[in-house]
Design a protein around this nucleic acid. Structure first.
Lengths: 146, 146
DNA sequence: CTGGATCCCAATAGATACTG
DNA sequence: CAGTATCTATTGGGATCCAG
């Protein structure tokens, strides 16, 4: 879909979110960041969804430009990059949760929920807390980003 | 993104939802169906987002195949088609709401929220009720759809 | 070795014009 | 009104290359 610019901006806040979430690869990357604690470039490649490296690089860049994730050097190994949720990105968690709730209700192909989803279901608030607290969130206040 | 098939199915319920929502045009169509009570093909074209007719046709077909919307003839005028949310599609409302909440918090370009969003904010539950009750929902039970 | 960039080319998305 | 047809632009897969 055409990206959101000043020219096609109609003052609809929903469109603002749709611009970030209306992409399958971005959603999968966010899932891995939030529920699977993916941190490195290779983690996303290894996630098994078959994302191409050029697409991955593009989406990571896009998500960073949108201010929902941030990059930094791994303090342990300089060659590694760590991707993290920003505060703005953390705000997306309820949306992903809502997607999971809906999917679980309507998906008739998955009999056994993925392990990370199961963990979330068994103790929703506890799981969320652990996921979110486990992250040292990057800076980002309302008004930042694209 | 590659569409979800039996071959690339990894048993992740989140991916199930991402497959439906990971598309900007589909999200906009759902917004218009849910919050703007769009019913006809032309309503979506006129929504001002500049969707091409082939894309619109494709997405309407896709959403129908996924079981979130249904088509039927307009009883008043046979040449018209009415698009409606199914029960499964109605289940998406909380997700769209979550997107709106997030967008309103982080969008710094829209000072004045769109009118339909404002209505929703002023009386969230009442608004939802009116929107949803205003629709005669089409049939669709868990286990249906793609 | 990790995080990309680049290239090739196949497949998909999309704009515009046109039709039953 | 609700779409097709056609043509072009962009995305994406897969391999390879490269810099730190």
């Amino acid at each position: 879909m055409a990206r959101q610019t000043s020219e096609n901006w109609f003052g609809c806040p929903f469109r603002f979110g749709a611009n970030v979430l209306g992409d399958g690869w971005s959603l999968l990357i966010l899932r891995d960041l939030i529920f699977r604690e993916a941190r490195h470039y290779g983690d996303f490649v290894a996630a098994g969804e078959g994302i191409s490296t050029n697409i991955l690089a593009d989406r990571l860049q896009r998500l960073e430009a949108e201010g929902v994730i941030s990059k930094q050097q791994d303090p342990d190994r300089a060659v590694r990059v760590i991707y993290r949720l920003t505060e703005k990105g953390r705000g997306l968690v309820p949306i992903l949760m809502a997607i999971i709730d809906w999917s679980e209700q309507w998906d008739d192909r998955t009999e056994v929920p993925a392990a990370f989803i199961k963990a979330y279901r068994e103790d929703r608030s506890g799981f969320v807390a652990s996921v979110v607290d486990g992250l040292e969130l990057a800076e980002a206040k309302p008004g930042e980003g694209a």
